[in-house]
Nucleic acid binder design. Sequence first.
DNA 1: GAGCACTGC
Length: 714
Amino acid sequence: MHRIIATQHNTTFSLSLCVCVCVSGSEAPGVCEERDLSSETTGSPIIYNPHTALSVEKQRQRLPVFKHRNNILYLVESFQTVVIVGETGSGKSTQIPQYLLEAGWAADGKVIGVTQPRRVAATSVAGRVAEERGAYLGHEVGYSIRFDDCSDPHATRIKFLTDGMLVREMMSDPLLKKYSVIMLDEAHERTLYTDIAIGLLKKVMLYLLSIISQMSTCVRFFFPLFSLSLQIQKKRRDLRLIVASATLDAKKFHDFFNLNESGDPNKDTCAILTVEGRTFPVDIFYTVSPVPDYVKATVETVMKIHETEEDGDVLAFLTGQEEVEKVVSMLQEQARTLSRYGMKKHLCVLPMYAGLPYNEQMRVFERMPPTVRKVVVATNIAETSITINGMVFVIDCAFVKLRAYNPLTAIESLIVTPISKASACQRAGRAGRNRAGKCFRLYTEEDFEKLPESTVPEMQRSNLAPVILQLKALGIDNVLRFSFLSPPPAQSMVQALELLYALGGLDQYGRLTDPMGVRMAEFPLSPMFAKMLLESGNFGCSKEIVTIAAMMQIQNIFVAPHNQKKSAARERRKFAVAEGDHLTMLNVYEAFIKHQKSSQWCQDHFLHYKGLLRAVAVREQLRHLLNKFKVPRTSSEGDPDVILRCIVSGFFANAARMHHSGSYRVVFNEVVQTSKYYMRDVTAVESSWLVELAPHFYKQAKHGSLSSKRAKVF
DNA sequence: GAGCACTGC
C-alpha cells in the first residue's frame, strides 16, 4: 500500500506504514487531560450523584484494563514488582488503584500511592477516581502536590502524588511505611524524580536483603545504617511496586527489579503484564527526500492538508517560540490570501507554547465552527503535557529542544536535538484520539530508522548536584554505587560532588555537613539557591533574597502578547535596574505587593499574574524554611551591594566575564543555546567578591585576573 | 534590544 502525495512545492510524502496508536478518550474517561490552566490549585470536593452510580460502574467495566483485573491482583499478590505495559486509553491509571483498594490492599490504614510526573495529572486523575467512587476528593481518594495537599492522613486510602513529592516524603519516611503499594505511572517518561524514586524503591525493597546476611555484628556496631537495613528487611518485604510503562522500556524495568539470580524463572520477583489500549489507526507519511527547511515545509504541509484533505484540525510540532511564531505568521498570511480568493473553508492558526500568555493559550482549546479548520502550531508542550481534542493531522519536524549538560564545563543548556522513535510515535498518536488520523513526518523513512529508540533519560543530561544532595540526605552515602536505572556520566557525579563541597554542603569525605548540607537538602531548590538563602541572614538581606529566590523559580514573569510587543518591552524596561536581573525581579515583586497583588495592575504592566501569585506561595514556603533554620529576618534597606554579595555566595560557580578585556563580571542562573549562547538571569558583580566569598573555588592570579577550577566556556 | 523546550520539589 504505497501512495504518493505531492505537495504544492517540493515537500513530497509517501505513505509508508499504517500503525495503530492512541485512543478514544483519555485513560481517565471523562477527565479533561488538558492542563488545568485556570487554577494553580484545585481541591473542591466532588459531590456524589447517586443517579450516575450505575453508569459509572458500567463505564469502568468497559475499559480494556477490566478484563485483566484478576490477573493484575494475582500478580501483585505473587510478585514484589509488576511491570504493567498499559497502552494509552487502557484505563490503568484510574482503575488499578481501585482494584487494589477493593482487594484489601488498603486495609490496616495502609495507603495505595500512585505517582505522576505532572501536577495536573495527579490532581485530575485523583478527581476522576474520587468521582467514580462517589467520594469527596481529599477523603478516601486524595492527592498531594507542592503547595496543595488534598489528602487526609487518616481517611485517604488512594493517594495520587507527583513523583517529586514521593521523593520528598521519603526524606521523612525512608521506608514509606504508610504505603502498601506504590504505582509509578508514566515511568517510561523517565523524569528525574521518577528515576530517583525507582532507585530508592529498589533499595527499600530488594537491595538490602542480600547484604544483610553477609554482615557481622561487629560491622553492625560500626555501621548504624545497618540497623536501618534490618528494619527495611523486616518491615518492607510486604511493599509492592507497580511500574506502569510503555512497551519499549518494560524489559529494562523488569530486569532492574528482578532480583532472582538463580536462573530459575519460577523464582522471579518481577512480572510483566500487557494491557491493550483503545486505538485508532494513524497513517504515517514520510517525505520522499530530506527537507532542507522544516519551518517552510511545515507551512507548505499545512496548506496542502487544507487544500486536499477532508475536515479535521492540524497539530504541528516545532522546537521553540521563535519557530512557532514564524510559522503562525506565515500561515496567517496565506490564510488571508485564501479568504481573499473566496475559499470556503477558513484557517484559524494558533500558537501554543509554555511562555504564551494564559488567554492566548486557552484559545487552542476552543471549538471551531464547521467551516473553520484549526491549526495549532506548538512546541513539545503538546506531546505529553497538554492534549487538544479533535486533532486529525499531525506534522512532525523530528526535532525538539532538550536540556543538555556538559559535565566538563558544568553548563546546562538547551539544544535542538533529533527526537527519538518513541517521541515520534507519541506525536503521531496525537492525530488519533478521536478518529483515524494522519501524521506527516518532515523526514524520510530512512532518517526515521536512524533515530534513537528513546530519549536519553533526564538523569543522564542534568546537573546532578540537586540529585546527589537529596540522595545524601536520604542516607545514601556512596552515591557512586547507587543503583541508577540508567547511570549518569561519572564526570557529572564528580562535578556535582565538587560543587556541593564548594558550597559547603559536603565535607572533604563527601559526607553531608550538619547543619549546612542537611538544611540545603530541605529546600525545594537547587543547592546554589539554598546556599544563597541560608547565607542571607549573615549578609543582612534575607527579606530581599527570599523574594529573589522565589521570583527566579517563575518562568515568563514578563508577558508580551504578540500584537503589543513594543509596549510590553517599554513596560518591562520600567522595572529594569543597572545591577541586573536579580534586582529587577525584586523590583517587580515589591511593586506587585505594593499594588495589592492586583491582576489588573499586572495586565497593565504586562506581568504574568498567576506566575507572581506562585512566587508569593514559593516565597512563603521558603520563608517558612528559613524560620525553621532560625535565619533572621533582615533587610538591606536599599543597599544593593549586600544583596549582590549574598547572590555571589551561592552562585560563585556560575561566573562569567562580560567582555574579555574588562573586569566586568556577572553571575548567571542558567545558559540557553539558540543561535548563540544566552545567559538567563544575569547580575553584575565585582570580581574581588568571587575570591573573597569563594576562595576555595577561585584564586587570584598574578595580574589580578581570576582563574577558576572550571573550564571556560565563553 | 531581543533573546528564552518541558516538568518538578
